[in-house]
Design a protein around this nucleic acid. Structure first.
Lengths: 193, 193
DNA sequence: CCGATATTTCAGAAAATACTGAAATAACAG
DNA sequence: CTGTTATTTCAGTATTTTCTGAAATATCGG
């Protein structure tokens, strides 16, 4: 590995982190390298910097492309492929969340819906279905919310995030102004501390 | 594997999904089984139902405990350990997010802070640091927001999520009432559609 | 303390995943 | 079409991870 120390630290860290998510070390390192790089890199650049085989880089880049996490570019008079990450880090977050949703949440929701259609054959299955219903409703709530957030402009999204707990006060005001609108989400207050 | 079909479908799915997250198939299956079960299960129950070795179950349960994802209980006159998941699914979500933050986000934030302290030795390192600063600020924004959300009662949290895009309208109202308070987050409006 | 039962540990086997080098394919310039 | 350069594929190898069975440890009742 042939990198300035500061960059190497980050690249190694992301290699390890990659393992915690579904991606392997090399893919994590390639992405980290591209993220930090000021200019697009070609496969040979990456080979030299990370010290892995050309074929490994090829497969890693293919995987990153399948995640829509890297952009393929070309330089005039150079027919090698150059890769880069979006300049806008929020765009990266959006893509990441979108892809993970596509691969993890959506298939799970599909499966839950299928299983919830079936007739339970015992008390055990009936309870299991009730549990799956809870999970289904939770996932649906979260994905609906996510769809809304994804639709917001980044500026608005950031504003919202920065609001943090203050949002609670705004909700209090809203409740006082329109007491009916949120009431259906309220159960008996026995759980309130 | 010795399970009612409906439950087996779910358990197998979560076993596979587990691989996408950092956990292995067996751990995913154990968790799915406990999640669906109406009553706490002991290790031997799990062995019979999943058809894996006793030692594998032991290690899987240990891992789930290290994630705070299962509760250990005892029955009177029975000295075996019984395991269950929280009844409240929102509690599960909270724990899951908290633990993933602890293992993935926090160490990354620590590393980013360390690296950002160092003096860049070249233009390349300077650019890399700027990039890491962006990531650091993003993570900090998200973790601050998350801390706020974690503090909310579940009812409030759900209310907030259900609000979805409507929040935007409330923000518009807020902006009209208190034009100053959110203004610092606004840049020039050239990006507005 | 003893015997019975429950759980954990751990070395090695089995399985899954990552990685490489070599060959195949593709894309282009002349 | 031919030679050159870029990229991909893939079979085999290396590495890592998961899983098991056996042994060790722990806990309890008597």
């Amino acid at each position: 590995m042939n990198l300035p120390p500061l960059i190497q630290t980050f690249v190694l860290h992301f290699g390890e982190m990659g393992s915690r998510w579904g991606i392997n070390r090399t893919v994590g390192q390639i992405y980290a390298l591209l993220f930090l790089s000021g200019e697009p890199l070609n496969a040979e650049d990456i080979v030299e910097r990370l010290g892995v085989s050309r074929s490994n880089v090829s497969m890693g880049l293919k995987e990153l492309q399948s995640w829509n996490l890297v952009r393929l570019q070309h330089k005039p008079g150079d027919r090698r492929d150059y890769f880069s990450t979006p300049d806008d880090i929020w765009q990266i977050v959006r893509t990441l969340v979108e892809e993970r949703k596509k691969r993890e949440i959506d298939p799970t929701l599909t499966l839950l819906r299928e299983v919830l259609m079936q007739e339970p054959a015992s008390a055990e299955e009936r309870h299991a279905q009730a549990r799956m219903r809870e999970m289904h409703d939770l996932f649906e709530l979260l994905t609906d919310w996510y769809a809304d957030m994804q639709r917001l402009e980044t500026e608005r999204l950031v504003q919202l995030l920065k609001l943090g707990t203050k949002i609670q006060k705004i909700l209090d005001v809203k409740d006082r102004l329109f007491p009916a609108s949120g009431a259906k989400n309220r159960r008996s207050s026995d759980k309130d501390k």
